[in-house]
């Protein structure tokens, strides 16, 4: 089922994509004993940056000191390497499915500028929430669901439940 779009790009069948994703998620647990994630790498990068600029602050902070400072190496972390892999894998996929292109994707009804402002705000809020919930859609919800974690299911329901309501509020940005 190839639905080739005007620009020549096309997508994998979503179920096939899901099986591939699930297989890699399973392998992550089987090989490394942990799920896949993304926001953890951001957390470590932030902690590493702050550690370089203000090491004393890191040592005093109850949050940073969990994963940076002292002899901890926040950048030599499983999730940081995994995220580098994500970038490479997505890039390959972009080549194969003909999607490599610099652009700002937005609804024709809004300007690129508005889209970028909302993307920044969305990222900020998402980043904040991901720290509170100890993980994002991939790390907490998806990986948590794979090992039947109660917290993973709760996070998943909270994210998607809220997003359904919030998407309706922000519908002008999308449709």
């Amino acid at each position: 089922m190839k639905k080739i779009k005007n620009d020549g790009s096309y997508y994998l069948n979503p179920y096939l994509g899901g099986v591939i994703l699930g297989t890699f998620l399973f392998l992550a647990f089987y090989i490394s004993g942990r799920g896949l994630g993304a926001s953890g790498a951001v957390k470590n990068s932030v902690a590493a940056t702050v550690n370089v600029i203000a090491p004393g602050h890191v040592a005093n902070s109850a949050y940073y000191s969990q994963f940076a400072g002292g002899d901890k190496q926040p950048m030599s972390n499983w999730l940081v390497f995994e995220v580098l892999g994500v970038l490479a894998g997505a890039f390959f996929s972009g080549i194969i499915f003909n999607r490599l292109k610099f652009k700002v994707e937005h609804s024709p009804k809004i300007t690129s500028r508005r889209r970028l402002v909302f993307a920044l705000a969305g990222g900020l809020i998402f980043g904040f929430g991901s720290q509170l919930a100890r993980g994002c859609t991939s790390g907490a919800a998806l990986s948590g669901m794979a090992v039947l974690s109660f917290g993973g299911y709760i996070t998943m329901i909270a994210i998607f439940g809220t997003a359904f309501v919030a998407a309706w509020i922000f519908r002008k940005n999308w449709i």
């Binding site: 896949l36 994630g37 993304a38 926001s39 951001v42 994500v86 909302f118 993307a119 920044l120 705000a121 969305g122 990222g123 900020l124 809020i125 998402f126 980043g127 904040f128 929430g129 991901s130 720290q131 509170l132 919930a133 100890r134 994002c136 859609t137 991939s138 709760i154 996070t155 998943m156 329901i157 909270a158 994210i159 998607f160 439940g161 809220t162 997003a163 309501v165 919030a166 998407a167 509020i169 922000f170 940005n173 999308w174």
Partner: peptide, 18 residues
């Protein structure tokens, strides 16, 4: 609470971290 905050960010930004 974190999930609710993420849901709002999701609807605004259209992405999740991954």
């Amino acid at each position: 609470v974190g999930g609710i905050i993420m849901g709002i960010g999701f609807a605004m930004g259209g992405f999740c971290p991954g």
